[in-house]
Design a protein around this nucleic acid. Structure first.
Length: 555
RNA sequence: AGUCCGAUGGUGUAACGGUAGCACCACAGUUUUUGGUACUGUUUGUCUAGGUUCGAAUCCUGGUCGGACUACCA
């Protein structure tokens, strides 16, 4: 079994490194989130990559929280991130925090000061920005750039001791204010923040910048392949510079293009805005591209992982069709979700030749895709609810459902023929009258009649009710971030439709949160986390493919 | 303007100097007691101009287009 599988560019690099004996063939990756938001599908890509690579090459993968900014970081986020990673099916080798290295990082800074490679700057944020220069103009050196090593040492010590207010002083690397890479123009290493840190408490009032923590953290952990997204490519020379000046383990960073999805936004800043401004109910709103949102929506973890693995990675800009993710969701759910019947937009159908008060218990298979899926009982009676769209007063030629004189199969039950229908004053159909064919019962059909269509139904006296929430894409345009104006101008106002009273078959009365079903012919649905036995709530995970709807659209 | 990155069907991703392939989408059909699933088939692509070579998506050069970078965020 030698399945020839092509390698992505990182796997090629790794296999080369192993072949050359680099790091004695050791592979160690890490997933380094900042705990200031919930994980989204882009992070899921990174998780699959880092953990997947470690697994494939018998290596290790750390989970490291890059918690260098106490102002935005919270324990709630740490917990949600850990939960999401586990749910996706991955387990980290070490749970670590950049804040674990604050002492080491401080020593690194002192080392650089002693080498004359770092200095304390009294300039304000505005002054630093103003002297930064631009892409076509070199920056200007700070007047504090040439302080003595002794003075820098003392000032930095005082910064640490809390002698100065926020923003009063910074520690900067002394590199080159004319460097074509703006990040090498004396970047900030430390800033003063008298803020409470979620892990170190009030021990520190100076905190390292991400750029002075990230690369060295990788180095401290002896990460062999530091994988991150493309926007950090300009930072690599800076990380390499720190590592070289400090003479520590040379982690090497590799960059890949971040994953984008159509009809959504992916930046944490924008997602946070949607949450804070109540455009969605929270980070786990089923419309959000977050891992927790997709979980609540009913996307199986395996579908997300398969999606990430199949789409793969590269270095070019991309925007993946949301439909591809939905394909893998359907592919998973098709195998695992039990089929049940629910009528979302009901109209009553009366079987005029069926005995009043009579009731039959029919047997329905749970899942034709699963031999061991078993079956359940479904009650049938004279009056049933059917889907309003399954009846047409004047049906077109290829309409294989109900209309005057037309016959359909009621799923798991009998063939019925439409004889007449009743309309109210406004012209709305209120009742459909049919006769059934007694010898056409499913499983023991001797009628010899073949009908093209089969529709789902729920018995009126036996029906239970539920709330159903239908979701559409969150944005009206493919790439809200690239449109003119504010991305929020493109929010789809109809992204959630609530159906307060939907008829469901009685077997669904006991459905528990997170349980998944296929509502026959309507789509995959998942019991919401807010659902109770008094009020059952279903989220529509994704619709079924609908060839008829497509046909109708074509006109 | 500078530095860096990238460019393969509608989308994503392979082909490592030797037949441009795979998945999704689209289209056509077969099966079907879900207009679902499954299965079969079809359309559509190497940004451009040169060069190297028997042979270039691949290597070289120029151009074009797209993206990133000028936060005491990460």
């Amino acid at each position: 079994m030698t399945e020839e599988k092509s390698l992505n560019f990182l796997e090629e690099i790794i296999e080369n490194d192993i072949a050359e004996g680099k790091n004695d063939g050791r592979i160690h990756t890490r997933f380094p989130p900042e705990p200031n938001g919930y994980l989204h599908i882009g992070h899921a890509s990174s998780i699959c990559l880092n953990f997947g690579l470690a697994k494939k090459y018998n290596g290790k993968c750390n989970l490291r929280f890059d918690d260098t900014n106490p102002v935005t970081e919270e324990t709630e986020y740490v917990e949600s991130i850990k939960n999401d990673i586990k749910w996706l099916g991955f387990q980290w080798d070490n749970e670590l925090y950049a804040s674990d290295y604050f002492d080491t990082l401080y020593d690194f800074a002192v080392t650089l000061i002693k080498k004359g490679l770092a200095y304390v700057d009294d300039s304000t944020a505005e002054e630093i920005a103003a002297t930064k220069g631009s892409t076509f103009e070199p920056g200007k050196e700070s007047p504090y750039r040439n302080r003595s090593i002794e003075e820098n040492l003392q000032l930095f010590e005082e910064m640490k001791a809390g002698k100065y207010k926020d923003g009063e002083k910074t520690l900067r690397a002394r590199i080159d204010m004319a460097h074509p890479n703006l990040l090498l123009r004396d970047p900030l290493m430390y800033r003063i923040k008298h803020a409470h840190h979620h892990r170190t408490g009030d021990k520190w009032c100076i905190y390292p910048m991400y750029d002075f923590a990230h690369g060295q953290s990788d180095s401290i952990e002896h990460i062999t392949h530091s994988i991150c997204t493309l926007e950090f490519i300009h930072h690599r020379p800076l990380y390499d510079w720190f590592i070289q000046q400090l003479g520590i383990f040379p982690s090497h960073q590799y960059e890949f293009a971040r994953r984008n999805l159509t009809y959504t936004v992916m930046s944490k800043r924008k997602l946070l805005q949607l949450v804070n401004e109540k455009h969605v109910s929270g980070w786990d709103d089923p419309r959000m591209p977050t891992v927790s949102g997709m979980r609540r929506r009913g996307y199986p973890a395996k579908a997300i992982v398969t999606f990430c693995d199949t789409v793969g990675i590269a270095k070019r800009e991309n925007i993946v069709d949301l439909g591809l993710l939905e394909f893998y969701v359907r592919e998973q759910l098709n195998k695992s979700a039990n089929r049940v019947m629910a009528v979302l937009d009901p109209v009553k159908l009366v079987i005029t030749n069926y005995e009043e008060g009579k009731e039959e218990i029919l047997t329905a298979e749970n899942n034709p895709e699963d031999e061991n899926g078993g079956s359940r009982s479904v009650p049938f009676s004279r009056e049933i609810w059917i889907e309003r769209e399954d009846f047409m007063e004047e049906p077109p030629k290829k309409f294989f459902r109900l209309g005057p004189g037309l016959m359909v199969r009621l799923k798991h039950a009998y063939i019925v023929k439409c004889d007449s229908f009743v309309k109210d004053d406004s012209g709305k159909v209120t009742e459909i009258h049919c006769t059934y064919i007694p010898e056409s019962r499913s499983g023991s059909d001797t009628s010899g009649i073949n009908v093209k269509g089969t529709i789902h139904w729920v018995s009126v006296p036996h029906a239970k009710t539920a709330e159903v929430r239908l979701y559409e894409r969150l944005f009206k345009v493919e790439d809200p971030g690239s449109e003119d104006g504010d991305f929020k101008d493109y929010i789809n106002p109809d992204s959630m439709q609530v159906l307060p009273k939907v008829y469901i078959e009685p077997s669904l009365a006991e459905a528990q949160p997170m349980q998944q079903f296929q509502f026959l012919r309507k789509g995959y649905f998942c019991v919401d986390t807010e659902s109770t036995s008094d009020k059952i709530i279903f989220n529509r995970t994704v619709t079924l493919k609908d060839a008829w709807a497509k046909e109708m659209k074509k006109g």
